[in-house]
């Protein structure tokens, strides 16, 4: 299979939205974006800059993602995930 040219570009540091990650892939969080309850709310769920996220599952039609951050699973709407920036590793 051909390497995804995009993933190559991302590995040297350019942050991309969390929604570009595929199930099974891992990445580092670089920015949290906004939630209606504020960034503090993300942090209390264990979602913090510098942490490694993995996508467990995605739903069709821009449904929520289920991610794993250091052992905690979080379901997160597509619209929120879009504003969370990550760096693929």
């Amino acid at each position: 299979m051909m390497e995804n040219p995009l993933s190559d570009m991302n590995s040297d540091g350019k942050p991309v939205p969390l929604t570009t990650l595929l199930p099974g892939e891992k990445a580092k969080i670089v920015a949290l974006g906004r939630s209606i309850r504020g960034q503090h709310h993300f942090r209390t769920m264990g979602l913090m800059e510098g942490k490694i996220v993995e996508i467990i599952a995605t739903q069709p039609a821009r449904g929520p993602l289920v991610i794993n951050v250091e052992g905690t699973q979080i379901a997160i709407g597509w619209g929120i995930a879009r504003h969370i920036l990550i760096q693929k590793i």
């Binding site: 209606i36 929520p64 289920v66 905690t72 979080i74 379901a75 997160i76």
Partner: peptide
Amino acid sequence: ESPELLLEVPP
């Protein structure tokens, strides 16, 4: 507003 889901999925 109808905000999006943000929910912890406990083990």
